[in-house]
Write a protein that binds this DNA or RNA. Structure first.
Lengths: 161, 161
DNA sequence: TATTGTTATACTCTATAACTATA
DNA sequence: TATAGTTATAGAGTATAACAATA
């Protein structure tokens, strides 16, 4: 069905729908997290698209821009991805000349993934876009509230590390 | 790769990985939301599995347990799903006798989805499981902090409604 | 024997297009 | 002409198994 996200099709229906949501799933943190995450992903991917990135590849690029660069194994661990997913993400970024695979000095099995100059340059612009996307999501909150949310989310996200 | 989520494989490597994350993506709300959401989904699905439900089907069941029941269109709107996704979710629950499709009184095109007695009975137990999963995710926070997080997330999630 | 990166595969999620029956 | 539900399909995201090179 095309255009299923059409705006304001039926105001009364919409109000009824909202009433149901308000009385049932509204206090469900899992539901709220899913919604907020979907929103942030959509805004983030929208902003990053102009740089040919998505949330995933952006994260890899960010981490690869550190001084030494992480191994693929470390990328998988930090981003909670399977190592096999990291392969294709790095393939894509390497194919575009944004990162390089370098054999790790201490372990010939491991690759260190490190951003190229082109990658770092792109990252500078992309991170501005990511920031503005983040602000579009958070701008319903005051600045102190944004800080608070970041802190609370951080503790929940790190719960099992 | 089997067992890629193995515990504490290499403490020093893990510490290095954590250091990188701390200095780069740690303040990124999008990243934190993705992490927290993944965590909540995993815990939720784990708890709901014993009832043969997942986060999605649980949400549909919750909403269908209201007095009148939502139409499929309303379910799609509330859960931000495409109407085509609602079809298979309702198919599954209806096949298990947990909800029914009833023609809407005012519009012969529309189906109202309403929980059966079996569905309501299952929901009672499932909602307890969902609550305990939520607590496992939130128990790093004090009770007032949990309330605060719920409120802040709610405002962000409802940003564009 | 275990680990790093890789390939392959499958299942869920998400998104879009096209059809039908009603309005 | 538009909407509710449906079918079909394709792309991400996620997860698991098996393999070669190396530790």
């Amino acid at each position: 069905m095309p255009n299923s996200r059409g705006r304001a099709a039926d105001a009364s229906r919409s109000a009824a729908a909202r009433r149901i949501a308000d009385t049932t799933l509204d206090g469900d943190v899992g539901f709220l997290l899913a919604r907020a995450n979907a929103l942030a992903m959509a805004e983030g991917n929208l902003s990053l698209a102009e740089h040919g990135l998505r949330a995933r590849s952006y994260s890899v690029l960010v981490l690869s821009a550190s001084v030494t660069g992480p191994t693929q194994r470390e990328l998988a661990e930090i981003l909670r991805l399977d190592p096999s997913q990291v392969v294709s993400l790095v393939d894509e970024l390497e194919g575009r000349g944004l990162v390089e695979r370098r054999p790790a000095e201490t372990d010939r099995r491991a690759n260190v993934v490190i951003a190229t100059d082109a990658g770092r340059s792109l990252l500078e612009h992309a991170s501005l876009s990511a920031r503005s996307a983040e602000q579009r999501v958070l701008n319903v909150l005051s600045l102190p509230e944004q800080v608070q949310l970041r802190a609370l989310l951080g503790r929940v996200a790190r719960r099992s590390v």
